[in-house]
Design a protein around this nucleic acid. Structure first.
Lengths: 351, 351
DNA sequence: CCGTAGGCTGAATGCGCTTTCAGCAACGAC
DNA sequence: GTCGTTGCTGAAAGCGCATTCAGCCTACGG
């Protein structure tokens, strides 16, 4: 039982292989009667065109790729239930958005988490099979990027920008600016503390700069650095909240977190301490994960258009596929400040 | 700027293309000095082996495929927030599990939602590019399945079994049986009502049979059909709950739903009606979605090992890849009854 | 009835790689 | 010194398809 090829179908249908090929690639160029003969033969033999052969001959695979960081083995593994489902949702949503957009464009999607200890080798596996590659955050090294980037279109998603590469990211700065402004102007908060992510997270840093900008704008003292940092998990948020409460200085009247997970962790810690949110202290997050709506009080946050990130990735790849020498494009996707209970706004209100 | 090939690398390194190929496929067969020369040349040229050419020559792509039903445009689109995130989570988790397992085995994963109006064409796109294909639920037609199944390993996930095909599913029957038994034996409930899914959902029907079996076992009257059905959404659950409350017969003392979404909808409806859960009426779901733990009262349910489903899919595909003529294998994955508040159990307890 | 344009089809080539198979050098054992 | 051996490397033959080019046939105008 060998898998049938064009030759088999051609023989069965009494035509040449060129005609079989045309039936699939350019049906209109074949007379209807001939076409039916071929299709009947194909059905009978169980013929499916080989993607590899097609790819070789036509110099295009019809597949787009996505590399994303592999969280699973690190954080999610020991996170209790709900958390893990939420945590990985980010890449899931990007995958979903990208899959949809790719399909609309007639491309399939090849995905691969970048496991640190085999990144290079594995990258080639993916890169060699696709017409264009999207790379989420820092899921591959500078060197690998160069090798692949010279060969095919690559778009970077979130994280750091790289000269010469297309890039899509969300408006971290603007979102945090607007949210912080809301806290300062609308709620009259004056002693905000910022709990950031790792210093090497470009997204987290951009959010902090938005936080700074809001202070500048309001004429408040400029915070030089985040008041504390954490690894973006709920556990880190819990820890950060307690640390900020117990500082010697005056207690802050608002805790601004670099992401939702940390903010949710903080809510738990504050509840355990009996500190009322938002009455005594306001809390905000960033990301707009589903969990943010389910916690009590509901979490004020900045919603990212995660699925859109994937769709834009496809858009940029396709554009470059059509025109290899176009200028690198940076796309910043708008975010949405979602005012909920944890900042002192009553119900849900999306601005 | 054409993408470099083995020929370019071979020339640059002063060796033959066979040697270049060996450096990538079988490094030990090449002297270290030669290997280094080749790798240096490759790096300099930005060479990445073409997956298509490799696939053609070696008769294997090193890629596994997953087709899953495309929900997005139908339900999730108009579902409010949390729901959509939860809804699609099912396929997301399968994708994630499959991706992990595939990567461990050295395979990449090609995914494609099966959009109804182009199923056939699109299927071939995927099938032609992979060494093995996993198909989630009814995401492709009988006819397509036959064509593809003759060509390459195919494993069916959930849904209906097909003679001759490997299949992986969760223990719908056993899970519902055990859960229902718990309601009858441990909580002494006697008038349970079952709200099923669409009659053509094999999973839903299997769950109902488990529900029936528990009645048989306890010597209670055998329910012939589900008391009502819905489309597995929260809205349907709301509707079903009200319908079951307002029937002429005696009010049931427990509502058993075919999935969590419907059960959650029911909880909302009951709360609105002022019917106490679980005091007046117990409620249970099936699936173990994250949301089930977040609602109040927390939902008693049966947890599916969704990610495991994807991992098992890979396992079955690999096994068949190694031995094409092995007997079709049906793998039933164990589920976990999770007793929470909505059935009358106090805190969380997983049995 | 001939010439020609247009619509279909087939022969042939090559896409970039893997994989025998043969060749060749160095090296012992005899 | 000869004859395997062992260890690498190169030549060459496809893998299954897309595509070009030429050829055929039909239909049509003259």
């Amino acid at each position: 039982m060998t898998t049938p090829t064009v030759y088999d179908v051609a023989e069965q249908a009494g035509v040449s292989i060129a005609t079989v090929s045309r039936v699939y690639r350019n049906p209109d160029a074949v007379r209807a009667a001939t076409r039916d003969k071929v299709l009947a033969a194909a059905r009978e033999l169980g013929y499916v065109p080989s993607g590899s052969a097609r790819g070789l001959a036509s110099r295009a695979t019809g597949v787009l790729g996505l590399c994303f960081p592999d969280f699973h083995d690190t954080e999610a593994e020991h996170a209790p239930g709900a958390e893990d489902a939420e945590l990985v949702l980010y890449s899931d949503q990007v995958i979903r958005g990208m899959e949809r957009a790719a399909r609309r464009q007639g491309y399939a999607l090849l995905i691969s988490a970048a496991h640190a200890d085999q990144a290079g080798r594995q990258l080639a596996e993916v890169a060699g099979r696709v017409d264009g590659l999207a790379v989420l955050a820092q899921s591959l090294t500078e060197e690998d990027l160069d090798v692949v980037g010279r060969r095919q279109p690559v778009v970077l998603l979130a994280g750091e920008r790289h000269a010469g590469y297309d890039h899509a990211e969300v408006a971290n700065f603007d979102g945090q600016l607007e949210l912080t402004r809301h806290l300062i102007v609308d709620h009259g908060l004056r002693r905000l503390a910022f709990a950031g992510g790792p210093a090497d997270s470009p997204d987290g840093e951009a959010r902090f700069r938005g936080f700074q900008a809001a202070h500048l704008e309001a004429g408040l003292p400029l915070p030089k650095t985040p008041d504390t940092r954490g690894d973006l998990t709920q556990a880190a948020g819990r820890k950060a909240a307690l640390e900020l409460l117990d500082r010697d200085e005056a207690m802050p009247d608002g805790l601004v977190f670099a992401n939702d997970q940390m903010a949710v962790g903080a809510l738990h810690a504050l509840e355990a301490r009996g500190v009322a949110v938002p009455d005594v202290i306001a809390v905000t997050g960033f990301d707009g994960i589903p969990l943010s709506r389910l916690v009590r009080p509901t979490l004020t946050t900045v919603r990212q258009p995660t699925g859109l990130l994937g769709e834009v990735a496809v858009e940029l790849l396709i554009a470059r596929l059509h025109q290899r020498d176009r200028a690198a494009e940076v796309r910043v996707l708008p975010v949405t400040v979602t005012r909920r209970a944890s900042c002192g706004c009553a119900g849900e209100r999306t601005v």
